[in-house]
């Protein structure tokens, strides 16, 4: 068995007190930095890269992996507590995670996000280890038509996900596509909708857009309301989800893991699509009325975790180029 031999080699190298310490340390500072609103895993890795320069290659890799996981989870913290997605894949976490937080279940939401991420991360890692060659061959066959179909799927999912008017949802999807047009066109290098501002030649980045649409809007509407204004002040009391929440979370986590592992193989947009797809599925499958916050909590964990396993294997290699087409 190649797999076990390779895994044994890997564990032999990684499981030393020093390397585990690096992992813990990386995960810790990754979470701390990732918690800052607007700083997603990729930005965190970029900022913390210099920290690993002094280490051996193995230690550096282990620490970076820790940082990545930590930052990914940190993003869901701001998404749940203040409705600020740190990056695109935690957008879905906002939808219901924040609603749970507003009803005083912030602790449970955070715990479920953490446990769910951990579980799906483990499954994803095992899957990658076991099927990497097969999966890679499969992913390489993905070409433009397949990507187009995936993008279309994602956009339709966005419409399906929306609360309220379908027409408005389609309008916003189109508006979003148009925001994506800002910048230099890839075929002819024509600068579109840049108004002569050099900063816009690169296009509109996701994070400022999300900060404006989700964060600022949330702050403004909070200031507008007089009664239940405060986002979440003191309610992170218990981290333990109650039995009901666990019962609803478990199947959602399992489904989310499955979807995340499947869609996560695809380079580019895998995490975002996986999280949206998982949410769409949960919305359909859920037996509980959507009005109840607990029922909602179910769907959203699903999306949080697929992102983790989905992204990790690719993240260092092609995060930059891969994240482009989705914008």
């Amino acid at each position: 068995m190649d797999l076990f031999a390779n895994l044994a080699t890997g564990f032999g190298a990684a499981v030393t007190p020093v390397n585990l310490g690096f992992c813990l340390f990386g995960c810790l500072i990754g979470t701390l930095i990732g918690v800052l609103p607007g700083i997603g895993p990729i930005a965190t890795i970029a900022m913390l890269l210099p920290v690993t320069f002094g280490l051996s290659p193995l230690g550096a890799l282990i620490m970076l992996a820790g940082i990545y996981y930590g930052a990914q989870y940190g993003g869901s913290t701001t998404a749940i507590l203040v409705n600020l997605p740190g990056e695109s894949s935690s957008v879905v976490t906002c939808i219901d995670g924040y609603q749970m937080a507003r009803r005083g279940r912030a602790g449970a939401a955070l715990a479920i996000a953490a446990v769910g991420s951990f579980f799906a991360g483990c499954v994803g890692t095992v899957l990658i280890a076991a099927f990497a060659p097969v999966l890679a061959a499969f992913a390489v066959q993905f070409r433009s038509p397949e990507y187009f179909a995936l993008m279309l799927f994602g956009l339709i999912a966005a419409v399906v996900l929306a609360h309220g008017s379908v027409v408005k949802a389609i309008g916003m999807v189109i508006l979003g596509l148009m925001v994506g047009l800002v910048g230099t066109e890839s075929q002819s290098a024509t600068a579109r909708f840049t108004f002569g501002v050099p900063e816009l030649y690169d296009g509109v980045d996701f994070v400022p857009l999300a900060m404006g649409l989700f964060g600022l809007a949330e702050i403004m509407s909070n200031l507008d309301r007089s009664d239940d204004s405060r986002a979440v002040s003191s309610t992170v009391a218990s981290l333990w989800p109650n039995r009901e929440e666990i019962r609803r979370a478990v199947p959602a986590v399992l489904r989310g893991t499955a979807i995340g592992s499947l869609l996560g193989i695809l380079p580019g947009g895998g995490a975002v699509l996986a999280s949206f797809a998982a949410y769409t599925l949960e919305k359909k499958v859920s037996r509980f009325p959507r009005s109840s916050a607990k029922a909602r909590s179910k769907g959203w964990r699903a999306r949080n975790r697929p992102t983790t396993p989905a992204r990790r294997p690719r993240s260092f290699r092609c995060s930059r180029s891969a994240s482009r087409p989705i914008r």
Partner: peptide, 19 residues
């Protein structure tokens, strides 16, 4: 480079009109 912007603009105009 003007193809997609024009198509999307018209779509947006249409959606706005419907609304």
């Amino acid at each position: 480079p003007g193809y997609l912007p024009a198509v999307l603009s018209w779509a947006l105009l249409g959606i706005g009109g419907v609304l």
